[in-house]
Computed example of a mutant assay.
Amino acid sequence: MKRLRSLLPLLILIALGIALVASGALKHFDPHNIAREQADLHAEISAHPLFAALIQIGLMTMAIATGIPGAIVIVLAGGMLFGIVAGTTLSAIGTTLGALILFLASRSAFSHGSGEPPALVAKLRSGYHAYPVSFAMFMRLVPFFPFGGVTVALAWLRCPLWLFLMATATGGTVMIAFETALGAGLTETIAREGTISLNIFAHRRVLLPLLGMAVLALAPIVLAQLRRLSRAKAEG
């Protein structure tokens, strides 16, 4: 019974995510639809700025907390409708809140493991705990890692809450800033080209800065290993 109670928050989030995807609600945030209705949506935002901001935060919170694929379209919509600065701020707040909910639910699900963990699990956790900050930042900054998957992985690795929030608020915001900036320019792109492809996120102008920051996050680990090798050679 305790095991079921610990799993219940995560199961509820999974069920909400499945329902959200099945409802087709994310189709309303397709950039082409936003571009067609942008004038009306901007008028609504101007008339109800606080309500509009809360909607953007709430949508991002729900999308990230449930781990659904396609949450990026909400970030793009935020860039198109609110601009780079406001869009990044609102989406980052929602992302951090949603990630916190998913992290706590995942940590609850993993909290009642019994007995000694398998050797591989123990080795992975010990490796992570040797350099927790570098690993947490690396996982958040690499764009190929699913955001929800990283959140669950950090909960499984027993990442401290303060470190999880720091890595999510910084690394997550960096990624959102790139995506929001792309979203802010999509209206002009759609008007000029008639359509867009999400392949733009594979462009080197997007990937290289993120990968560069991810490499920097691993720098302390690399330096520590080099010092260890140097010390071993000196002693040998």
Rank of each mutant, 00 (worst) to 15 (best):
Ala25Val: 13
Ile176Gln: 09
Ile72Lys: 09
Thr89Gln: 02
Met137Val: 04
Trp156Lys: 07
Ile200Ser: 02
Met175Asn: 15
His129Tyr: 00
Pro31Ala: 10
Phe201Asn: 01
Leu165Met: 15
Gln38Asn: 09
Ala119Gln: 09
Thr151Lys: 05
Ser114Gly: 05
Ala63Trp: 01
Phe147Ile: 10
Ala232Tyr: 04
Ile18Asp: 01
Gln56Ala: 14
Arg3Glu: 13
Met139Cys: 11
Glu116Tyr: 03
Ile200Pro: 02
Gly148His: 06
Phe110Cys: 03
Trp162Ile: 11
Glu37Thr: 12
Ile196Cys: 00
Ala92His: 01
Ile190Gln: 07
Gly79Trp: 07
Ala15Asp: 08
Ala63Ser: 05
Ala77Asp: 04
Gly83Ser: 01
Val150Ile: 14
Pro209Leu: 03
Ser111Asp: 07
Val222Leu: 14
Phe201Gln: 00
Ala35Val: 11
Leu198Tyr: 15
Gln38Glu: 06
Leu41Gln: 05
Ala202Ile: 05
Thr151Tyr: 11
Val174Phe: 13
Gly98Ser: 05
Ala19His: 11
Tyr131Phe: 14
Leu124Thr: 06
Arg231Ser: 04
Gln225Glu: 12
Ser46Cys: 01
Arg107Cys: 01
Leu120Gln: 13
Leu50Ala: 12
Ala217Val: 02
Leu41Val: 03
Pro9Ile: 11
Ala71Trp: 01
Met1His: 08
Lys233Arg: 15
Phe29Leu: 14
Phe144Trp: 12
Arg5Met: 14
Ile196Phe: 09
Leu141Gly: 01
Ser114Phe: 10
Ala155His: 06
Phe138Thr: 09
Met80Ile: 12
Ser46Tyr: 09
Gly149Asp: 04
Pro9Tyr: 07
Pro9Val: 10
Pro31Cys: 09
Ile55Arg: 04
Phe110Met: 07
Ala184Pro: 14
Ser114His: 15
Leu97Met: 11
Thr170Asp: 02
Ala109Ser: 14
Gly115His: 09
Ser6Phe: 09
Trp162His: 15
Val206Tyr: 15
Gly70Phe: 13
Leu50Phe: 13
Val206Cys: 10
Leu182Met: 13
His32Ile: 15
Asp40Pro: 02
Met175Pro: 06
Val121Phe: 08
Ala167Met: 05
Ile18Asn: 11
Ser6His: 13
Ile34Lys: 07
Ala99Tyr: 03
Thr89Glu: 02
Gly113Asp: 13
Asn199Thr: 12
Phe29Ser: 06
Ile57Gly: 02
Leu10Asp: 04
Cys159His: 09
Leu124Gln: 10
Gly17Pro: 08
Thr151Ala: 08
Ser230Asn: 07
Phe82Glu: 00
Thr96Ala: 12
Val222Trp: 02
Met80Arg: 10
Ile64Met: 09
Leu10Val: 10
His32Val: 15
Ser134Tyr: 00
Thr173Asp: 05
Gly113Cys: 10
Phe82Trp: 07
Thr189Tyr: 07
Thr89Lys: 06
Cys159Arg: 10
Thr151Arg: 06
Ala43Gln: 12
Gly78Tyr: 08
Gly17Tyr: 04
Gly78Asn: 13
Pro143Cys: 03
Ala214Gln: 06
Met139Asn: 06
Pro9Arg: 13
His203Ala: 14
Phe138Arg: 03
Ile196Arg: 00
